[in-house]
Structures are given as C-alpha cells and as structure tokens.
Design a protein around this nucleic acid. Structure first.
Lengths: 103, 103
DNA sequence: TAAACTAGTTTGTAATACAAACCAGATTAG
DNA sequence: CTAATCTGGTTTGTATTACAAACTAGTTTA
C-alpha cells in the first residue's frame, strides 16, 4: 500500500472532529440528537452545526428535524454512503500506516 | 473506546497530506529528499514546503540540509517522537472506528 | 552572457474551523 | 400579563489553514 493512496480518501473524513462524529453515529443503533453530540464531543453549537451541515451536504449523514414537546429536535444517523466511506477510510489508513510501520 | 478520544490526537496528523508524508517517511529505511516527496505525493513545492515546516516545528520529523554537486539538498526522516505519535494515532483511530463498526 | 533548470522559500489567496452573536419559540418568575 | 431565562439550534464574523503562484539563489546549457 502506497502513502499516495491516502490522497484519494474523502477529505471530509480526515478531520478528527468529523471522524469522531461519524464514529459516534456509526456506533449508535438509534438516531443521535444534536444535544447528545454536543455533550459527548464537547463542541460549541456553532462548530457542531457547521460540521453537521457539511456531512449532510456530502450525503454522509441523514438528518431528521421534528418537534418534541413543542421544541425543535434534530437527529442524525449515518447514511449507507457514510457507512461505506468510513469503512473505506479506515481500511486505507490501516493499510498504508501498517504497511509503513512494517505490519 | 470513545469517539471523543479522537479529540486528543495530534491535529497535525489528522490531515491526509501530512499523514501520507509521515507514512512515507516512516516506511523508508533512509532519509527521503524533497524531490522524492514531491513526486511520490504529487504536491506543489510551496504546499510541501509548508507542510514540512509544520512537521519540523512540531518535532515529528528531522531535517537535514546539505549541498550535493553544488546543489541544495534537503532530506527528511521521522523523529522518534514522530514514530511514537503515528503509532498512537493509528491505534486510536483503529480502536474508535472498529469499536464503532462493531469490530 | 543570457536563457533555462534545480531546489527550494515566501507571499498572497481561497477555503476551513471555530466561537460569538443572534433568532424563534417555550418556560419560569415577578 | 410581560419580562427575563432557557432550549435548540443557525448565521455571521474571524482566525487559522492549505494551497499555488511568484520569487530567490545558485547551476547548467545554449
């Protein structure tokens, strides 16, 4: 595996914040709401909001907006594409780095 | 393993270009020169130069400047710290993502 | 001796990450 | 009732970053 292969990975995933978001969503059976992401990842609301927007626009997450108890509730889940891309990202990083480190 | 753990990784390594650079250096027995990095990773000189500067300032790579055939030659190698941080980065990404994907 | 090449660095710009300020509505206090 | 506070976000401004174009210093070729 060639280091250059890393250049073909989705740049959105090579940000540790978004990678953490995707990991959290991937590991959750159910949808995850905004507040939960905020608390578990310790981000500011503005920062989380813009990361989620990018992931949504890239089709890596699905978004569901609703009202619960008259209050807005936004929940997220990984899309099929998101799952695929995360799997692919990990595979490439592992392959390249393990190969570099001599297994 | 908790997605939030990714937030403690070195942000310098969560850029795919620098990760590729570190992988290439880690996998090389000998020092690697500027031109080789340029060719193997297909970057522009300015871009590579500034990435290398950051890695150097962070102490992740060692730099050696000399003259060969009257021409400047800059070679790089991973530092002990760099090796350690790369290993740590991979370990965390693997742990978090594999845990999220259910092994 | 001028043009082109090598090996980079510096500088300007576009994109990105982030937090502060804002907004809409719901709840609580006076 | 209505003013302040809380909730659940989005928008906007700013600092940082990634990147390429232009530059520098010296070398080789024409």
């Amino acid at each position: 595996m060639n280091p250059h292969d890393l250049m073909q990975t989705n740049p959105l995933l090579s940000d540790r914040v978004r990678l953490a978001i995707m990991a959290l969503l991937t590991g959750s059976k159910d949808e995850v709401d905004f507040k939960t992401l905020l608390d578990r990842l310790e981000l500011t609301k503005g920062n989380l909001s813009s990361h989620m927007r990018k992931l949504e626009e890239a089709g890596l997450v699905d978004v569901h907006k609703s009202f619960v108890d008259r209050k807005p509730l936004t929940t997220y889940s990984v899309s099929a594409k998101g799952r695929e891309e995360i799997r692919n990202y990990l595979a490439k990083v592992e392959a390249v780095l393990q190969s570099a480190m001599g297994r």
